[in-house]
Amino acid sequence: MAEKKRYAFVIDPARCIDCRACLVACRAEWNTPAGQTRIWVHSDGPQGVFPNLSQTFIPAQCHHCEDPWCVDACPTGATFKREDGLVLIDEEACIGCGLCVNACPYQARFRNTVTGKADKCSACFHRVEAGEMPACVATCIGGARLFGDLNDPESTVSRAIAGRAVYRPITNEVNTQPMTLYLSSPAAAAVQVSPQPREPVPAETFWHTVALPVVKAAVALAFGGQALAFIFQLFKGENEYEEA
């Protein structure tokens, strides 16, 4: 096997023209339901006062974090991180509980209203495996969205970041080691680039504080008790006439 891959998105907001081709490409590639998108182009609108204005456009999607909180939250393992770095969802194994949706500090996930499963950017792994770029990257007119293997010095992403400062969308509170490298600071109000930690849902709290301890204690007590009883019985010995 070739050298291990380390896939990453590299995004140059300066080159994004907010044409939204990526949004449609993603929509067409994955047929996500209307109103649900796997990727975003954020803008805070024109900043400043006429005529001194500026406007930036920040493309975003799942950051395929190196420390993915969604994977930790998934109760079945349907969400997993591949060795090449992609965080993927095995849709057939997903039960649509939404814990991962809640866990992602970037709100990069949603529950697909048609399939009832968790959904998010998959970096078009099927295209990548076929040697193509993810749909959003392939169609990006401005060249703002790049994707590739950071371990390959010849890849577009490696060349794009060579000698340039890169910014990860992290905060003091949240550092999931996102694998999206921005070529300029992705300062925007949007949560997809300004992560917010989120409270666990009540069921999850119940799970950790009640279900798990109770089950652990019950099983341990039952097993321990029976083991003790068995030892006691060994010491006591058996009386064949006692047998009923």
Partner: peptide, 12 residues
């Protein structure tokens, strides 16, 4: 799963 050999991951 870490090796990416999950069989039934659907993709178009």
């Amino acid at each position: 799963r870490a090796q990416g050999t999950t069989h039934f991951l659907p993709g178009p």
